[in-house]
Amino acid sequence: MRASDAVAVSTVGLRARRLRAALSALGIAIAIAALVAVLGVAESSKAELLAELGEQGNLLTVAAGRTFDGTPTPLPATAPAMIGQIPPVRAVTAVGTVEGVTVRRTAAVPERQTGGITVVAAQPSLVDTLGVTLARGAYLARPALPEVVLGDAAGRILGIGPLDAQTRVYLGGTYFAVVGVLDPVPVAPEIDTAALISFGVADELFRQQGRPTRVYLRVEPDRVADVAAVLAFTAAPEDPRSVEVRRPSDILLARIAAKGAYVGLFLGLGGVALLVAGVGIANIMVISVLERRAEIGLRRALGARRRDVAVQFLLESALLAGAGGVLGVGLGCLATAVAAGLAGNPVAIPPLAPLAGLAAALVAGALAGGYPAVRAARLPPADALRTL
Rank of each mutant, 00 (worst) to 15 (best):
V12F: 11
I287K: 08
V326S: 04
V224L: 08
A373K: 00
S198D: 11
I30C: 10
A356D: 00
G264D: 05
R300T: 04
A254L: 12
L314P: 03
A108S: 06
Q166W: 14
L334C: 09
D128T: 12
G70Y: 06
D164N: 15
A121M: 05
G328D: 03
Y175L: 13
A225L: 09
A225G: 05
M285V: 06
K259C: 06
T73C: 10
L50S: 14
A254T: 14
S198K: 09
Q312F: 01
L379M: 01
D383S: 05
R255T: 12
T73S: 05
E99S: 13
I296N: 02
Q208K: 07
V169D: 08
G322H: 01
V227N: 13
S125F: 09
G116S: 14
I191L: 12
D226N: 08
T71K: 09
A188W: 05
G137N: 10
L302Q: 06
G40E: 09
R142W: 14
A277K: 04
V149E: 12
P80K: 02
L171P: 01
R247G: 07
T174N: 05
G161T: 07
P184D: 12
D222H: 12
G303M: 02
A366D: 01
E316C: 00
T118S: 13
V243L: 07
L23W: 10
L50D: 15
P380D: 06
R17H: 15
D152K: 11
V187G: 07
G172A: 09
A373V: 00
A257E: 11
D69Q: 02
D383Q: 13
V120G: 07
L140Y: 05
A188Q: 07
A348N: 10
E52V: 12
V309E: 03
R18C: 10
G322A: 01
Y170C: 03
A91W: 08
L358Q: 03
T102G: 06
R299F: 00
P221F: 15
V187E: 10
I197G: 06
L388W: 06
L130P: 09
A384Y: 01
A81H: 10
L158P: 03
G115S: 04
G57D: 14
A135Y: 11
R378Y: 12
A318E: 02
G271Y: 03
L150I: 04
R15G: 11
A360V: 01
I349S: 03
A31Q: 09
A235R: 01
G332K: 04
A25N: 04
A165D: 15
V289H: 02
L39S: 14
G161K: 08
A236E: 13
G151D: 13
T61L: 14
A108D: 11
A202M: 07
V62N: 08
V230F: 13
V62G: 09
P212E: 11
G325I: 01
A195S: 09
R307K: 02
G116Q: 03
